[in-house]
């Protein structure tokens, strides 16, 4: 048993005082998840004479990552949406003390037998369900967009923001990330930031929960075309629902290599599903602003990963690839949105 196995078992035994013979089996790191280290494992223990086996997920903070995120917010989002129309795994324990596993972490239910890889969803046997996936994907996003943060209790873990300040808060934050992490000046992204400041969007009708990384690749799906779990809530915050819609349409997620959003359906169809579900209208000018913003945010994320990798803080090979490969594509997406690619 590796050190991490035994320490994890020790922690869970501490959280389950009525359990005996607590063991962790099959601990295995999952590739991706560049903001947190993600491991799958099976928790085994005895309780009231019964042997229990439960597949779980460990999400542990790494020494460095693509983005600095609040684990309490992510944990809170899973808790808030569990049991609602938004399918998410059950969040079990949040641990902010580093002494158990060297870094803070949380543990949640593992939804087994499902796929999340964006390259798989565009290939057989999944590709035949593209429209079915899309309808669910943007319908679920619409449900998130119309959910009341106060009813969910998320206003207690996510900082408040006034409707008219949504765009500025996000842009200020992600521009500061570019300032901190760029290894070489970024003329395209700086031009985009100036454009965004000159052309602010109208405020949203309501401030809502924004998942903030809602895309193909961040949900679990099966071979019958059903979506079972929305993952990776680490960037979730209160804000303008159009931020999520625009991010989901970012050209970098066109995994099929054609015009289809998220490798699934054309943009207008995705927008229609979202509008039907959320009951909101996606104002084209406002969505255009958020689309350009999504490129700035994307670039900030790639730059952060590239810096972490270059500085040696995090040698996860995925950071090296994304920084290198995605950055130029993100610049091209900006140029396209601004009408300079033709």
């Amino acid at each position: 048993m590796s050190s991490l196995d035994s320490r994890l078992a020790e922690y869970i035994a501490h959280r389950l005082p009525g359990a005996d013979d607590v063991r962790v089996e099959g601990l295995d790191r999952i590739f991706g998840g560049a903001s947190r280290e993600t491991y799958r494992f099976v928790l085994c223990y005895r309780e009231n004479g019964a042997a229990i086996r439960r597949p779980l997920i460990l999400r542990r903070d790494p020494p460095g990552s693509l983005i600095e995120t609040e684990r309490a917010v992510e944990f809170g989002a899973y808790r808030a949406f569990h049991g609602t129309e938004v399918p998410v795994p059950e969040a079990l324990w949040l641990e902010e003390e580093a002494h158990w596993l060297d870094y803070p972490f949380f543990i949640m239910e593992q939804l087994t037998g499902l796929e999340s890889n964006p390259q798989q969803i565009i290939a057989p046997p999944y590709a035949q369900h593209a429209e079915k996936f899309a309808r669910q994907k943007w319908t679920i996003l619409g449900v998130i967009s119309k959910a009341d943060p106060q009813v969910l209790g998320l206003d207690r873990v996510m900082p408040a923001v006034a409707a008219q300040d949504c765009w500025r808060r996000e842009l200020d934050y992600w521009e500061s990330q570019v300032d901190e992490d760029e290894l070489c000046p970024q003329p395209v992204i700086r031009a985009a930031i100036r454009w965004l400041r000159r052309n602010p969007p109208p405020p949203p009708a309501e401030v809502r929960v924004v998942h903030a990384d809602y895309r193909t690749g961040n949900f679990l799906y099966d071979e019958d075309g059903r979506i079972h779990g929305i993952l990776d809530w680490e960037l979730a915050h209160l804000g303008d629902p159009l931020e999520d819609l625009a991010w989901s349409l970012n050209p970098l997620w066109r995994w099929a290599g054609d015009e289809r959003a998220g490798g699934l359906v054309p943009n207008d169809q995705a927008i229609r599903y979202w509008e039907q579900s959320s009951g909101m209208r996606a104002d084209p000018a406002a969505l255009h602003w958020w689309a350009i913003f999504s490129c700035v945010k994307g670039q900030a994320i790639w730059l952060s990963g590239a810096k972490e990798f270059s500085d040696g803080e995090n040698q996860d090979i995925i950071l090296g690839l994304t920084g290198w490969l995605m950055g130029n594509s993100q610049d091209r997406a900006v140029l396209d949105h601004l009408g300079y690619l033709s």
Binding site: L325, L335, D336
Partner: peptide, 16 residues
Amino acid sequence: ELVASTERRKLAMGVF
């Protein structure tokens, strides 16, 4: 020139 700069950096495996 900004467009040209992204053309120079394009990779065959690039997504956009």
